[in-house]
Simulated assay, not measured.
Amino acid sequence: MGRTVPVTVLAVTLAMLGAGCGERSGSGAPDGVPGTAPGSASASRTAQPSGGAAVDRVVFFSAAPKGPTDGHQVLHDRAEVERYAAAFGPGDPQARARIVAAGSGTDFGRQVLVGWTATTGCSAATAAALEVSGSRLELRVSQPEPPPECLRAFRVSVVFQVARERIPAQPVFG
């Protein structure tokens, strides 16, 4: 009985840590999101903006411990989309394919894509929104409160489809 308690406590502790900072599905989609295919974009992944004009067409969303380094970019054509998607390359070929597909479905005469990857800390993002206010672009992320213990930081990678006239000529990313 003396050894059972420490083993049980260890098992419960590891289970709790795994639940708070565990892996996501290989597709990058949050596990257990009802009504969404792995890696698909949906309105439930659009956060509520705090000000400015919200851009709510998410064409790619991933919240996982892995991903490319933090960065953001306005993608004006398919060649820029290909280069941006290459950053996901060997680490997540499915993500790369979905981003390229989003570029294929974009009318670059009327629209641009905005790709953004950021660290979200110890809890995975559940939704993201792009806020455009004047020349400033801001990423708004919704996520649950992080657990008290953290073994690994999460990242959010999101690509928004935006009407070309809504993106300033010289955007300032904030």
Results as ranks from 00 to 15, higher is better:
V156P: 01
A129N: 15
V141M: 07
L151M: 12
S123W: 00
Q170E: 12
V158G: 11
A129Y: 01
P147A: 13
C122A: 00
V141N: 06
Q143I: 04
C150I: 01
P171V: 05
R164M: 09
R166A: 12
L137M: 12
V158Y: 11
S123R: 01
C122R: 00
G134E: 08
L137I: 05
V158K: 08
R152Y: 12
A128R: 00
A124V: 03
R152L: 04
F154A: 14
E131V: 15
V156D: 00
A169M: 03
S123L: 00
F160L: 10
I167H: 01
Q143N: 10
V162W: 06
F154E: 09
P148H: 04
V172L: 05
V156C: 00
A124Q: 01
E145Q: 15
P147C: 02
A124G: 01
A153K: 09
P147F: 08
P147E: 05
V172I: 09
V159C: 08
L130R: 09
E165S: 10
I167Q: 11
A153W: 05
A163P: 14
A124I: 02
V132Y: 11
P147G: 14
P147H: 07
L139N: 14
F154R: 12
P148K: 06
I167V: 15
F154C: 02
L137A: 09
Q170A: 08
P171Q: 04
L137W: 06
S157R: 10
G134Q: 09
V159R: 07
R152K: 10
E149L: 12
F154H: 15
E145L: 13
S157E: 00
P168G: 02
R136W: 05
P168M: 04
A128W: 02
V159I: 03
P146T: 06
A129W: 04
L151V: 13
P144N: 03
S123P: 03
R136V: 14
A128T: 11
S135A: 13
A125E: 02
S142K: 13
A163S: 11
L130D: 02
A169V: 08
R166F: 07
S133L: 06
T126P: 01
L151C: 06
E165F: 08
I167L: 09
I167S: 09
A128D: 07
P168E: 03
E131A: 14
E131G: 11
V162F: 08
Q143W: 05
L130C: 06
Q143L: 13
A169C: 05
P144F: 08
C150Q: 01
A128V: 03
C150V: 00
R164V: 05
P146I: 04
R155N: 12
P168F: 02
P168L: 06
